[in-house]
Computed example of a mutant assay.
Amino acid sequence: MGWVTTSDRRSALRAGAGLVAAGAFAAACSPPGASSGAVDSGPPASAPATSASPPSGVAGRPPAAPSPRAFPRQPVQIAHGPRDRPRVALTFHGQGEPAVARALLDEAERHGARVTVLAVGTWLDEHPDLARRVLDGGHDLGNHTQRHLDVNAMSEAEAAAEIAGCAERLRRLTGSIGAWFRPSRAARASPLVERLARRAGYPHVLSYDVDSLDFTSPGAPAVTRNVLGEIRNGSVVSLHFGYPDTVAALPALLDELARRRLRAVTATELIG
């Protein structure tokens, strides 16, 4: 699969990390101490589509009917994929310095890995070319709300606007609202946000069962240990663009996944 890395690439990534040492985005998606356990609870969802259509009210186009073969009766909130296959999904909360985002994507691709990026709408407003960069690399692109605020604490109208705002930007930039939604500032969606996400065209909320804790800036070795100590078949890992520790940790992390014969795939490939 072309799993390679060199000291030169590590040096380049560490140099890219310096670009964001002073500018890493201030608030993390998960509060310190948040549990990284599986949260795939709730009643099974009726079989949805892997690529959701634009939400109703966006350019006057209602969501398409869900495909009956898209997902095999998955719950609404998904924390991991099947445990019987050596595949994992590295998911990145999309915000931060664009040069570092590109460096992370480049390194993943050099290792033959594909990732999932849950983008913040304001980040897409500032760097619209990154939406196409993600998709052109063979990665998944999804919705992480418009402003990256605590969506679970919002009123229904406010939360709906956060989800729809990011969905509209994704649709405008790529022609799709993306396959996945993840709430901002939380590991899982509240029942209200879950319903609003489904209404906007997202059949599932993508959570995770492994938290890298990179947003706490613990150092690259700690990020690597946090992931490798918990990851197993089917895991979904929470990582972030915009933190230098993530940049520095990625080569060693991908090398060890290759050694363990764990293939990094998109969330769509893992779950679907």
Results as ranks from 00 to 15, higher is better:
Met1Lys: 15
Gly2Lys: 15
Val4Ala: 06
Thr5Glu: 04
Ser7Gln: 15
Arg9Ser: 08
Leu13Val: 09
Ala15Tyr: 09
Gly16Glu: 14
Gly18Ser: 08
Ala21Gln: 13
Ala22Trp: 08
Gly23Ser: 15
Ser35Met: 02
Ser35Val: 04
Ser36Tyr: 06
Val39Thr: 12
Gly42Asp: 07
Pro43Cys: 01
Ala45Val: 14
Thr50Gly: 02
Ser51Arg: 13
Val58Ile: 14
Arg61His: 07
Pro63His: 07
Pro66Asp: 09
Ser67Gly: 06
Pro68Glu: 08
Ala70Leu: 10
Pro72Asp: 07
Gln77Asp: 00
Gly81Arg: 12
Pro82Ala: 14
Leu90Glu: 02
Phe92Ile: 05
His93Glu: 15
Gln95Met: 13
Gly96Lys: 11
Glu97Gly: 01
Pro98Asn: 09
Pro98Phe: 12
Val100Glu: 09
Ala103Gly: 11
Asp106Ile: 04
Gly121Glu: 06
Gly121Ile: 06
Trp123His: 15
Glu126Asp: 15
His127Phe: 12
His127Tyr: 12
His127Val: 11
Val134Arg: 05
Leu135Asn: 01
His144Met: 09
Asp150Gln: 12
Ala153Thr: 09
Ser155Leu: 06
Ser155Arg: 15
Glu156His: 11
Ala161Glu: 13
Ala164Val: 15
Gly165Val: 11
Glu168Arg: 15
Leu173Pro: 03
Ile177His: 07
Ile177Cys: 04
Arg182His: 11
Ala186Phe: 06
Ser190Thr: 15
Pro191Gln: 10
Pro191Ile: 13
Glu194Gln: 14
Leu196Glu: 06
Ala197Tyr: 08
Tyr202Glu: 00
Pro203Trp: 13
Val205Arg: 04
Ser207Asn: 06
Asp209Val: 03
Leu213Met: 11
Leu213Thr: 05
Gly219Val: 08
Gly219Cys: 05
Val227Trp: 09
Leu228Phe: 08
Glu230Lys: 15
Glu230Gln: 15
Ile231Met: 08
Gly234Ser: 04
Val236Ala: 03
His240Met: 03
Thr246Cys: 06
Val247Ser: 03
Ala249Pro: 02
Pro251Gly: 02
Leu253Arg: 09
Glu256Gln: 14
Arg260Glu: 00
Leu262Ser: 06
Arg263Tyr: 03
Ala267Pro: 00
Ile271Cys: 04
